[in-house]
């Protein structure tokens, strides 16, 4: 989880990912360029391949949701 936080903070230093209760997509905290960067780094760091059908708001609204997606993809492999 720490690794994911570091990725997120690297992309957006101004957002509090650890304590924030905001919905990252629904509340428009992250934009498309953030998501491109985040998806790229997650793919590399966790050795997964997030594909377009997983790019749904519910998978990226919180760090926890992203972690769940990562775990799901790792199990599928």
């Amino acid at each position: 989880m720490e690794q994911l936080y570091e990725i997120l903070e690297g992309v957006r230093a101004d957002v509090d990912f650890r304590n924030g209760n905001q919905k990252l997509i629904d509340d428009a905290v992250l934009d498309s360029f953030d998501i491109i960067a985040i998806v790229g780094e997650i793919n590399e760091a966790f050795d997964v391949e997030i594909s377009v059908e997983e790019l749904l708001p519910e998978n990226f609204n919180s760090p926890e949701a992203m972690m769940e997606l990562i775990k799901k993809l790792q199990e599928e492999e």
Partner: peptide, 10 residues
């Protein structure tokens, strides 16, 4: 909707 360019599954 702007969101569709952030998470473009739909």
């Amino acid at each position: 909707p702007k969101k569709l360019f952030v998470t473009p599954a739909k």
